[in-house]
Design a protein around this nucleic acid. Structure first.
Length: 944
RNA sequence: GCCGGCGUGGUGGAAUUGGUAGACACGCAGGACUUAAAAUCCUGUGGCCGUAAGGCCGUAUCGGUUCAAGUCCGAUCGCCGGUACCA
């Protein structure tokens, strides 16, 4: 019988629906909660990327069910958002209608592909029964002081009259209309995520996320430790406070810089003598978008605030103050102490504006240790004029390449020492020109002298008197040879970074030294190493009330207001008497009113502002006249806690029942796109921790929502190009499902390549999987109760093992390869025993569930196989009895030998191998040096 | 610029984590079936030399460590992703 994908698949999808095959309760002993990101139901329908993620988790969940786990695999819709709203503005179709239509299409598509969701738990974030609790969470945050209103700068499109997200601003213009975008202050609701910053970093230890995902979380939070330091303004009461991670470089602060938005400029206006110039600069800077300002390639610009001086608190020096847009108001205090000697940005700025660059940290390489031999040295940088090459010594015995380095003898200046050493070691007469930077310190093992050395080096620039060398002593000749290398060669091949410093300074490529080291030019602190210095200076600052230890985060509080319609109304009311008051919890949900005009107002308020009847309300506190908040919540609001609600989706008493929370949470495995591993993950972890703190999430569950997080690679269009409508290369999964069936599409998406890598769609590959499934189907023609398939025991048991192991490691491609190997082996059998075939069907089931169900029922079973036990494998049978291992002679494979598995090395085997003709040929007349036999792996013979 | 990841046949990719490189699949070539084509089945398939046995080369490039390197180390080149002056 030919395989009829369409009818068979429809039949089983209907069966699963009617028999509630995948509905779960919280009764089983062991649970597994598998989660994928619920989609925004767009008009385009599901795409191949959704399918890759959903199918992978479906395979996992189907496998877990067969392991006996009570397996929850839920699905819902994140349906608030811009596309439906923009569509509404264009066509006047209420977003509710568009959304409902799209959702039903999504559900149909998901059912068509055979995903084993518990549909009884499904909801949309736009359901009032759901967003009632989203609003409830907001009120709880407000109660705890974690939701507050503040003025914030937003991107304002002057033509659309609408606030834009950073992503919607393209080189200073509105992405949609090309209109001018300016910064505008607006009152916004904010959530205090910064209060959770440290926990959001530290608790990552408890979870199993991919390392790059953890790193993204940590980087986004951007914690840095340092100090806040106060700089007085000369002849003024004003103070400029800065944040620095390098308080140990305070002595090198030779100027200050403030951001263009810094209020100090305003406050000190009267004292600025070039105010017109300064204001002009500020206006120009404000016009630039953040992206432009962040463009690293551009030159640093700035203007000095003439007439103002700041006082460096450590040495009371007067230093100039600049305004420059390389300092951001949004980080730290919006003002910096500039240390051009040890910060690359400050260095570039100082070079451009001729400000003093003062080194206060001597580079230290290696670690101080006991018993080191101290020596002060010179290192010589010499460039030949004729071809621009650098003079270097290649040490014969030690495989070093370094400039001429030598000790300074008594009574000698470093310059004299340099001239002498160059002459002695190379025969060239050279004149010392200048020192290249300050001294450097190195701690290293001097191989040539067999001692640990503590060296303080003076890089010195010399010039050759003429380019011909005199003869040098034989002892010097024996030690090293002189070579001349181009700049590139030299920087590439000189051993140790610190030996390159002289050349780099000479070429002006060294810049600012930002590393660790020893304090110099730092008054009483001279000689301290960086770490120690930081400790001491912070205490000194605290004692003198000039500063204190401080921690800064890149992470900001979360702006939670959007001037839109299609989002959760923020449940707050503004009363003239009482100010902002939260809506009574019993009044939730505050439903989004039906409106007719979805455009924002002229002054940039949410379209809701026009719904006067809805806006006017009573103050929950005093009962007086009040007005509702007309801004709505951002898209993130509904998606950051949805996985909690899946555990108890219909509860109208509380957000979640404690017992259900304890049973299902945390999520065991969360898979999704890499694009959501930063913000969505961070926000939902934050909300979960908050709910944990207020007792909604039981203590037993812990404060991390997801035990494990993985991410799939993108599905690219054919030829490896990103799919996009404009390129017309979007793959529509529906057409493949109708052509080949869901099982083929599912399996192809799992087979196409490693799950975490981006991979291009290939039509031919789809056809290949289709062929495989048809061959698997045809195997049932060979069924015979009496068949004896002992000769495939090995591959059968190996397959049961490997497929299971590969599924839980998300190595779906190799799991499928193994299924193919097994199918190929079965095909070669004359007859196939029913029990053997059952095992094949069971391990095929997670990937191709429809076909597997049909084969299963053909085998005489009445029930679905969804809850059948995963077959057991016999570890002994899964092991090959005989192992063929290669025999190498001097690293080349010359022969092989078949040995029983786990054969230990023995004299017998050795003898046997040395007698092999193929081997004899290579070892005759030679001395046997080594004979290596690694059990089950290799035999390696070395002869001379 | 910085931070990650990757580079293997004509193609997608395997490789027990240092142990016979190229599993599995696609494509291609030859053959069978067919009046023919499609579908299906069988055989072959990294390159070079050779009728063959066999040999040499081969995992981006160069170098190193090792009995043994796709795998480890160093440098270079290339691609992909993330990030953006974070003080």
């Amino acid at each position: 019988m030919k395989y009829q994908a369409d009818t068979i698949e429809k039949k089983w999808q209907q069966y699963w629906d009617e028999n509630n095959t995948f509905l779960v309760d919280d009764k089983g002993k062991q649970k597994f909660y598998g989660l994928v990101e619920f989609p925004y139901p767009s008009g385009d329908g599901l795409h191949t990327g959704h399918l890759r993620s959903y199918t992978a988790m479906d395979v996992l969940c189907r496998y877990q069910r067969m392991q006996g786990f009570q397996t929850l695999y839920p699905m819902g819709f994140d349906a608030f958002g811009l596309p439906a709203e923009n569509y509404a503005i264009k066509t006047n179709t209420p977003p509710k209608i568009t959304t409902e239509k799209n959702i039903s299409n999504y559900i149909k598509q998901m059912k068509d592909i055979g995903l084993s969701f518990d549909w009884d738990r499904s909801f949309s974030t736009t359901d009032p029964d759901y967003y009632r609790w989203t609003q409830w969470i907001f009120i709880q945050m407000h109660k705890q002081g974690l939701a507050y209103k503040a003025k914030e700068n937003i991107n304002w499109c002057t033509s659309c009259k609408i606030g834009l997200a950073n992503e919607e601003v393209v080189s200073g213009a509105c992405e949609r209309c090309g209109g001018e975008v300016v910064k505008q202050e607006k009152e916004q609701w904010m959530l205090k995520i910064t209060e959770y910053a440290d926990r959001l970093i530290n608790d990552l230890e408890q979870v199993d996320f991919l390392p790059q995902i953890k790193k993204q979380q940590v980087d986004w939070i951007g914690r840095s430790e340092g100090a806040e330091v106060q700089f007085k303004i000369k002849d003024s009461q004003e103070i400029l406070e800065v944040f620095t991670t390098r308080p140990d470089t305070l002595f090198g602060a030779t100027f200050m810089v403030v951001a263009p938005e810094h209020i100090a400029i305003h406050q000190l206006e009267g004292k600025i003598s070039n105010l017109a110039e300064v204001k002009k600069y500020i206006v120009a800077a404000k016009k630039k978008s953040d992206l432009e300002r962040a463009d690293l390639n551009k030159d640093k610009t700035g203007v000095e605030l003439k007439g103002l001086k700041a006082i460096n608190p450590v040495n009371n020096e007067e230093i100039p103050i600049f305004v420059a847009d390389y300092v951001m108001m949004s980080y730290g205090t919006g003002a910096i102490m500039a240390v051009p000697g040890h910060d690359q940005r400050d260095y570039e700025f100082a070079k451009k504006y001729n400000i003093e660059i003062r080194d206060v940290v001597m580079p230290v390489d290696g670690e101080v240790r006991d018993g080191e031999e101290y020596r002060e040295t010179i290192s010589a940088t010499i460039q030949r004029k004729s071809d621009g090459k650098f003079l270097l010594l290649k040490w014969k015995k030690f495989n070093w390449l370094a400039p001429v380095i030598g000790g300074i003898e008594e009574g000698e200046t470093p310059e004299q020492a340099a001239e002498r050493e160059v002459l002695e070691e190379t025969g060239y007469k050279a004149k010392a020109i200048k020192r290249l930077g300050n001294k450097t310190e190195e701690h290293f093992y001097a191989e040539n002298k067999d001692v640990w050395r503590y060296r303080v080096d003076n890089p010195i620039l010399l010039e050759l008197d003429d380019e011909s060398a005199q003869d040098i002593s034989d002892t010097e000749k024996a030690k090293h040879e002189i070579i001349w290398l181009s700049e590139k060669e030299a920087l590439q091949s000189v051993s140790h970074e610190y030996n390159k410093i002289g050349i780099l300074i000479y070429l002006d490529k060294y810049g600012a030294y930002g590393g660790e080291g020893r304090a110099i030019n730092s008054g009483e602190f001279d000689g301290l190493l960086t770490a120690e210095f930081k400790q001491k200076i912070i205490k000194w600052l605290e004692k003198n009330k000039l500063g204190k230890a401080a921690v800064n985060y890149k992470l900001h509080d979360w702006i939670f207001s959007r001037q839109r319609y299609w989002g959760e109304p923020i449940p707050m009311v503004n009363c003239d008497k009482c100010g902002w008051v939260a809506v009574a919890e019993d009044d939730l949900p505050i439903e989004l009113p039906d409106i007719k005009d979805f455009k924002p107002t002229d002054d940039g308020q949410s379209p809701l502002a026009k719904a006067e009847d809805w806006v006017k309300t009573e103050c929950p506190s005093c009962g007086g006249q009040a007005r509702r908040e007309t801004d709505v919540m951002p898209n993130w609001a509904g998606s950051n806690w949805y996985f909690i609600r899946f555990c108890d989706p219909k509860n109208n008493q509380e957000l979640i029942d404690k017992k259900k929370a304890e049973y299902w949470l945390p999520v065991d495995w969360y898979n999704g796109g890499m694009e959501h591993t930063t913000l969505h993950l961070l926000y939902s972890r934050f909300i979960f921790k908050f709910l944990y703190d207020i007792g909604v999430i039981p203590k037993k569950v812990g404060s991390e929502p997801y035990k494990k997080r993985t991410a799939q690679g993108m599905v690219l269009g054919e030829g490896g190009i990103k799919m996009s409508k404009s390129k017309g290369n979007v793959i529509n999964p529906d057409s493949y499902v109708s052509r080949y069936g869901a099982d083929t599409v599912r399996m192809y998406e799992m087979f196409m390549g490693p799950f975490d890598q981006s991979i291009a769609w290939d039509d031919k590959g789809v056809a290949g999987i289709y062929r495989f499934l048809n061959r698997a189907w045809d195997l049932q023609d060979k069924l015979d109760e009496k068949a004896d398939n002992v000769d495939i025991n090995n591959v059968l048991h190996k397959s049961i093992q490997k497929v299971g192991e590969d599924i839980v490691a998300m190595r779906f491609n190799t799991a499928i390869a193994q299924l193919m190997i097994l199918a190929n082996a079965l095909e070669k059998q004359d007859k196939i025993n029913n029990e053997v075939f059952e095992k094949f069907v069971l391990i095929l089931a997670p990937f191709a569930p429809h076909m597997a169900e049909e084969l299963w029922s053909e085998l005489g079973h009445k029930d679905s196989l969804a809850h059948e036990k995963w077959p057991k494998y016999d570890a002994k049978l899964a092991q090959d009895e005989l192992v063929t291992i290669g025999i190498q002679v001097n690293g080349k494979v010359r022969s092989e030998i078949e040995l029983p598995h786990d054969t230990e090395p023995s004299e017998d085997i050795k003898k046997q191998i040395l007698e092999q003709d193929k081997i004899k040929k290579y070892i005759e007349d030679k001395e046997l040096i080594k004979f290596i036999h690694i059990k089950n792996r290799i035999i390696s013979i070395v002869v001379k």
